[in-house]
């Protein structure tokens, strides 16, 4: 361990290139995320289920792939929406849909009401105060198209135990820096 550190100090060119490598890995991951975001037209194309309100379809920690290119949301579709003023995305099913056409401009407004499969009541209580429905364009960040179980549980652990984040980042950094060619 200490001899490694000594080697590191004696060979700054190699250690610099290793740090660069690490930065490259991070930026590649970030670029892939952003590319997916552009393809799916959604600010967050992959989400992790945080609550049990959609059981038995989705459990906590399941990974969902979103698609946001369809401008219509069907009844029964599982959508992810952000409530105004809250940061947490919610994954629920559309149970009611009304399409309002503005007679003057001809523009179509899609109004949706959602409900979790495992909840008794619909989501009116969850919405922002005075809001009775979701707007397809404003509130929805995508509808669920693909599903992988359990994989996202790591992120739940990371957000529930913040020190785990530091430990993981630290370990990754140390491993990259100390790794020999």
């Amino acid at each position: 361990m200490f001899s490694d550190l000594a080697a590191l100090a004696s060979n700054p060119r190699q250690s610099l290139s290793q740090i660069l490598n690490f930065a490259l890995v991070l930026s590649t991951a970030f670029m892939m995320w952003k590319t997916l975001s552009v393809i799916a037209d959604s600010p967050s194309p992959i989400v992790v289920v945080l609550s049990g309100s959609m059981e038995p379809a989705f459990q906590r920690g399941d990974l969902l792939f979103l698609w946001n290119r369809d401008k219509a949301a069907q009844v029964g579709e599982i959508v992810v929406y952000n409530v105004k003023g809250k940061d947490i995305p919610i994954v629920h099913r559309v149970v009611r849909r009304v399409e309002v056409v503005d007679k003057k401009t001809g523009s179509r407004d899609m109004r949706l009401l959602t409900k979790g499969d495992n909840n008794v009541a619909d989501d009116t209580e969850l919405y922002a105060r005075g809001q009775e429905y979701l707007d397809r364009k404003e509130d929805i960040i995508g509808s669920v198209r693909g599903y992988v179980p359990c994989v996202g549980y790591v992120t739940i652990l990371l957000s529930e135990y913040p020190w785990l984040k530091k430990v993981m980042l630290g370990l990754m950094g140390v491993m990259v820096v100390l790794q020999r060619e």
Partner: peptide, 12 residues
């Protein structure tokens, strides 16, 4: 409204 869709029953 040009379209109203209301879920009246569901099951798993």
């Amino acid at each position: 409204n040009s379209l109203n869709q209301v879920s009246v029953w569901d099951g798993i």
